[in-house]
């Protein structure tokens, strides 16, 4: 992905993270407000449980606070760092539970109840954030079902392509190709979205 797309894909301002690095508690609070929904959604999707997800997200933010000084904008967007950290911790926890196979296939808990019963609306971010969400959703939905399934089993289930092949009873190379093709199509679709004039 080129830098323009990376910039467009970032929902968190790098300057905000820079303030956090300096120990700005207000900035850390804003960082939480900007990213917690995304990270919590990811944790719920992987762990399939709100309480565990909340516990995990708490650990992740504490780790962010401790290690934020190591972050360098030149190495990746703030979103990438936070998402990758959260995903990794969630997968570790999932593996520790030994239930990654079933969790990956089962659909995650719906958030409908939370949305309905919670009087506070979910922050949707800027229009650019919403456009980006739509673009990613469209790109993922545009993949063939088999490719989408293979990517989600790997990404959210923490399964290797060998484990996915065994679970789906498919040849190794088939699963490998599905993931590779899927990732490549996602990259192409998002680049096209960027080139067609996404909000900067």
């Amino acid at each position: 992905m080129d830098k323009a797309l990376q910039h467009a894909a970032s929902t968190i301002d790098a300057a905000l993270l820079a303030r956090v690095v300096k120990g700005d508690q207000q900035a850390f609070s804003q960082l939480y407000d900007h990213s917690s929904v995304l990270l919590f959604s990811l944790a719920v999707r992987i762990l399939g449980n709100h309480e565990e997800a909340a516990d995990l997200v708490q650990d992740v933010y504490l780790e962010i606070w401790r290690k934020v000084s190591r972050y360098d904008i030149g190495r990746g967007t703030p979103d990438a760092w936070l998402v990758t950290l959260t995903k990794s911790r969630a997968i570790d926890r999932l593996r520790a539970k030994g239930t990654q196979g079933s969790r990956a296939i089962n659909p995650p808990e719906t958030t409908t109840a939370v949305q309905v019963t919670d009087p506070d609306p979910i922050p949707l971010g800027t229009q650019a954030d919403q456009d980006l969400r739509s673009a990613v959703g469209a790109a993922l939905a545009g993949l063939p079902q088999a490719q989408q399934q293979a990517i989600e089993l790997a990404y959210y289930g923490g399964l290797s392509y060998g484990e996915i092949a065994a679970q789906l009873n498919q040849p190794l190379w088939t699963v490998k190709t599905r993931i590779k093709l899927g990732m490549t199509k996602l990259q192409a679709a998002l680049k096209q979205w960027q080139n067609e004039g996404s909000p900067q």
Binding site: A53, A141, Y155
Partner: peptide, 16 residues
């Protein structure tokens, strides 16, 4: 990695 980091944006948002 940048593409992979965007995948959670397609999830239904859940408020902590």
């Amino acid at each position: 990695q940048s593409i992979a980091a965007l995948l959670p944006l397609a999830l239904s948002p859940s408020k902590p």
